[in-house]
Design a protein around this nucleic acid. Structure first.
Lengths: 143, 143
DNA sequence: TTAATTGCAAACATTTTGCAGGTTC
DNA sequence: GAACCTGCAAAATGTTTGCAATTAA
């Protein structure tokens, strides 16, 4: 199984291939948004994605940014991070890991799973299955 | 230090006292909302609080529910739980613990900290301090 | 009586949706 | 050419706010 710690796809062809592998029709907007998102390991809100797209000269509407981010989450291209009721963050690192969330900045940082060794997980309630474990370490700038 | 696992305050006088201890003026709406919230250990969204208040025959506006929940969070009467981008949950259990989140139901369950033994926490980035650790175990109903 | 609180409605921010026009295979 | 995608604007959600009327100490 390939890890997203592999160096990011660089060419549009590589990105188109990556999208195709997840049954995503690689339209111009999707390829460019994926290129933007996957360029580095990062955590961006939808609004940040839009502003970076605009800065990069991309022609994408707000609706398409939201639709595309939703599709990318559904297909495992990026991961949703829920730490703040005000907005969703999209994480280009889909490998298992946890997060620091700076409530002063509104910025996210990665925490490798090895840094939070968990001895055991509780059994989920009867009739349910565990689909994931999210750990958020909330931090503040020191006064 | 008192734990919220103590049996809940029952009388309005007890609740008023509890609010007063946190420098919250115990108005009728606040006392009734606190009584509703603290009756048992539970996880309610603002909308659920409003609907239960209405069912209980309370006279409270939406603005007051939101203002009061915000105040209660700030003063440690209840705790915010962020697991879903669509709404905030308010947890009447303020003792340290983690959560199951059933994404099918939108329901929360408690997980005692002893059930997720963490050997160590990572050092927060320079210039920051850790203010809390949230763990959410996402579950789904078995197919 | 003076400050604090409430309620209503309007404002907000984020995200979703309907639909006409454009694109892809 | 059939299915799918995009963009605009409007709608939907959940939450916050301005302000006049009410209540608390």
């Amino acid at each position: 199984m390939m890890s997203s710690s592999t160096s990011p796809p660089r060419t549009k062809a590589e990105i188109a291939e990556l999208l195709g592998a997840r049954d995503i029709l690689p339209t111009a907007q999707r390829v460019e948004l994926a290129a933007l998102l996957l360029a580095t390991q990062q955590h961006l809100s939808a609004e940040q994605v839009m502003s970076r797209a605009k800065i990069a000269g991309l022609v994408v509407s707000k609706a398409t940014v939201y639709n595309t981010l939703g599709l990318f989450v559904e297909r495992g291209i990026v991961r949703e991070v829920i730490v703040d009721s005000a907005r969703v963050f999209y994480d280009s690192n889909t490998d298992p890991h946890y997060h620091f969330y700076n409530v002063d900045d509104g910025t996210l940082g990665d925490v490798a799973t090895v840094h939070v060794p968990i001895e055991q997980l509780p059994t989920p309630p009867a009739g349910t299955v565990t689909t994931g474990v999210d750990i958020v370490i909330r931090i503040r700038n020191r006064p």
